[in-house]
Design a protein around this nucleic acid. Structure first.
Lengths: 174, 174
DNA sequence: CTCGCGTTTGGACGATCGTCCAGTACGATC
DNA sequence: GATCGTACTGGACGATCGTCCAAACGCGAG
């Protein structure tokens, strides 16, 4: 069984995606991790701190998986498809959107998210550059934003499948 | 002075963008509208109902402005630029993202947002079609999602200006 | 002036919030 | 077996939550 600290972080990531950042309370969090409510403030300074660490951790985990996803793709369209698939699996789709939104209202979180996003763009840009995509930095930045928007819209509209999206969004990679 | 009902809806739209959907409370809402706290439940069934009506109203208002924005553009890139400008001005950038996110957790809101989104896509698709953009329906759907993602990322990264974005995203319109 | 009605107020209610803390459980050390 | 420190429990605290309601207000009709 994972440590209590890890269980709390896992529970936090689940609950942010499920109920929204503002609706994750100390007791709901402790219940989901199957621990007493007091343990949250034993391992963390505040309930907000758990949410910040959990969401940033999820972002970093997704970033760590990026090189593998890109390595296994030989064309830009394949990479786009693989990217969408990978992000779909990585925790609830809503987790990333919730984290970005919370980052606009919390300076510490904004800095951490900004750092992860910058590295995401850099990794993506260098792959794009080595595969002949023009203006790789700008393309990577816009692509990152577009993918975030797609994660959000797909939660509302199941028709927005990868097969539907890739042929269109793939045009920015030419 | 606008009616109390209208002031409450305005205040709700402001506060959703400012503090997040889950952090708009009955009393904060009443304070912002400069009314007593009880008046919220005189005009509306619940605090959630105010948020739903306010956010859907803002979405519809943005939709109503779309034809004018498109009419005044002659090229796809111009339209994209005008679209980003218009949405920047329409209430806090975070309002749309918050609304979409809340819609994934509230069936009534999901339906209303889905209807507005469908009409947005349809209007945009027919403009794209008449300006020679291929696969206009799919392009409109992906463009709508990409624009939402850009609104979110721009809140975190001021470098993501229109001049930066349009040349890249404009490639999907070719 | 007085009535009646739509509007608004501010406080009461129980539930839940974040945080804190006295107390318990338990393995390691002597 | 006694002692200790870490990990954890569950309840107490005051603040705030959504909702409801008795009372007061403003104003046109009679």
């Amino acid at each position: 069984m994972a440590s209590v600290r890890e269980r709390l972080l896992e529970a936090a990531a689940e609950l942010i995606a499920e109920k929204g950042w503002g609706a994750v309370s100390t007791r709901v969090l402790a219940d989901r991790a199957s621990v007493g409510s007091g343990v949250v403030h034993y391992h963390f300074d505040s309930t907000q701190a758990v949410l910040v660490q959990a969401s940033v951790g999820a972002l970093r985990a997704a970033l760590a998986g990026l090189p593998d996803v890109l390595e296994s793709s030989s064309t830009p369209d394949q990479a786009l498809d693989a990217l969408l698939t990978a992000l779909d699996d990585a925790g609830g789709r809503e987790l990333f959107t919730e984290t970005f939104l919370a980052a606009t209202r919390n300076d510490e979180l904004r800095q951490a998210v900004g750092a992860v996003l910058a590295e995401f763009r850099q990794v993506l840009a260098s792959w794009l550059a080595s595969h002949g995509v023009p203006t790789p930095e700008q393309t990577a930045a816009v692509l990152a934003a577009a993918i975030d928007g797609l994660l959000l819209h797909r939660a509302l509209d199941p028709d927005l499948s990868r097969a539907f999206v890739v042929p269109v969004l793939g045009r920015v990679l030419r």
